[in-house]
């Protein structure tokens, strides 16, 4: 478990992280989502012990990072945003070195090195110097170095930045596997889709503050976001407009003779009522599409700007 309470970090006049609190549970992936410069890496830095928090409290697996630094770091894995590898050494040598930094040795170290080489798909080129690797391979090795010691808590700071789609899929699978194995995973990203598909719970951070936190449905509900329901068939737009307007909390975005677009909360639960009303008027429905609003739109609504700005 990773517990962060009232974390604050200031560089001169700039408050990088301001009163940040959240809890990442074991066996789940907690996403920290925000644009560049929002304070994600600073938060990760404070949790990992790289940076000294100005205020607040951070506990990793029950150990306070300030007072029990080495203990909290022993079972913590960190995958930094930048590649932190020795390019002159091979993948095996890199892994062996970082494994030894976490106290692994002898046959156990060898076993773990082989295991993560296998997991990351680098076993065939394990003896080559890292400088000969592609960007995606380096990313996977960077990740492997963070998990070689089987951490119980894992901090991932935008691990898929600049990675090709194939390596990205592989990396995300590796992250899920860590979570499945019971590790607490804290994952920072500014890729909305990644967060949507990967994270069990999310916190949206901007200007050093957490502006929203919850599961994906909770976030949507919290923000009053509506699902988009598109109905295709043969309609009289005026009658449809009149009929559906009588239903509660439904916004007709667009209606013509072939398509009706509605915005409504929890559209999946209300779909049967809507379709019944339409069919009672004698119109034919051929196809329906339900689109849940994306985090991107949530972020825009919350901050008034796009995530990648």
């Amino acid at each position: 478990m990773i517990e962060v309470e009232g974390l604050r970090k200031q560089y001169g006049d700039l408050v990088a992280v301001d009163d940040v609190s959240f809890t990442a549970e074991p066996g789940a992936i907690f996403g920290l989502l925000g644009p560049n410069g929002a304070g994600k890496s600073t938060t990760i830095g404070c949790i990992s012990g790289l940076l000294k928090p100005g205020a607040g409290r951070v506990r990793v697996l029950g150990h306070d990072v300030m007072t029990e630094g080495p203990l909290s770091r022993r079972k913590l894995g960190v995958v930094p945003q930048e590649l932190a590898l020795y390019e002159d050494l091979s993948a095996r040598e890199n892994l062996a070195y970082w494994g030894s930094a976490y106290g692994l040795r002898g046959s156990h170290l060898k076993k773990r090195v082989n295991s993560v080489l296998e997991l990351s798909g680098l076993i065939d080129r394990a003896k080559e110097p890292v400088k000969k690797y592609s960007g995606g391979m380096k990313r996977r090795l960077n990740f492997a170095c963070g998990i070689v010691h089987e951490p119980e808590a894992l901090l991932l700071d935008e691990p898929t930045v600049g990675v090709d789609p194939q390596s990205r899929v592989r990396l995300l699978d590796l992250v899920r596997e860590q979570s499945k194995n019971g590790a607490t995973v804290l994952y920072t990203t500014h890729y909305m889709e990644e967060a949507e598909h990967l994270c069990d719970r999310l916190a949206i951070i901007d200007h050093g503050k957490i502006i929203a936190e919850g599961t994906l449905p909770e976030l949507r509900a919290m923000l009053g976001e509506r699902d988009i329901l598109r109905i295709m068939g043969k309609f009289d737009p005026n009658i449809v407009f009149e009929t559906l307007s009588q239903l509660e909390d439904i916004e007709i975005v667009q209606a013509d003779e072939e398509t009706i677009t509605l915005a409504t909360p929890q559209a999946s639960t209300r779909l049967s009522d809507i379709l019944m009303e339409i069919s009672e008027e004698g119109f034919e429905v051929r196809e329906t599409t339900l689109t849940q609003p994306s985090l991107e739109s949530l972020f825009i609504k919350l901050t008034g700007k796009e995530l990648r700005e």
Partner: peptide, 14 residues
């Protein structure tokens, strides 16, 4: 510059 020093700092080693 290769960030390996940071990795050492976040490891349990002194």
């Amino acid at each position: 510059t290769r960030k390996t020093l940071r990795r050492v700092v976040v490891s349990p080693q002194h």
